[in-house]
Amino acid sequence: MIRKTFEWALSPMGRIAVLIAALSLFSLAAFGVYQSQQPPEQPIQFTHKLHVGLGVQCLYCHPGALRGPSPGLPTISKCWGCHQQIGKTQTSPLLKPMVDAMAKGEGFTWVPVAQVPDFVHFTHRPHVAAGLNCENCHGDMTQVTIAVNPQVMNMGWCLNCHKQKAAGDEEKLTKLTDCGTCHY
């Protein structure tokens, strides 16, 4: 049986069939990888570039980063606080979803981009307190519209930085490379 299949695969028709199968598998895998690398669909095409360019601080919309584990994503009221004073808000087609949602008294659901799995307990506060700037991990927001991760946020990436920061300080290194610091 196996021998027969092998012989068939060596025949011209068999070769073509194997080639097609391999190609379709490869393209499926490539499509899967491509899909997983796309930024998620957001309720509004929010332009970080424009807002940061206008001088809005990161912490104005993501204030939790200074004090707690999660920086938070702004609610519609925060957007409206500035945008109600801007005449273009009512006319721009890009901002229509926000105006409509505000009129109906609804909010919108942002899709978080920089996320860690459930078994990782990341806290922003100590990282900000250690003197890291937002762009060290999240990339230059003056260049992007919807936030994208500049790198894969995995454990090797975390540990590389932890080891660099704790170089020479044995106690700090123990703390920063301890499994229980992030996983519990």
Partner: peptide, 16 residues
Amino acid sequence: TPHSEAEQLNLQVYNR
């Protein structure tokens, strides 16, 4: 299930 040197506890790393 490593031993935490920093906190002196027994850990259980669920993802591992």
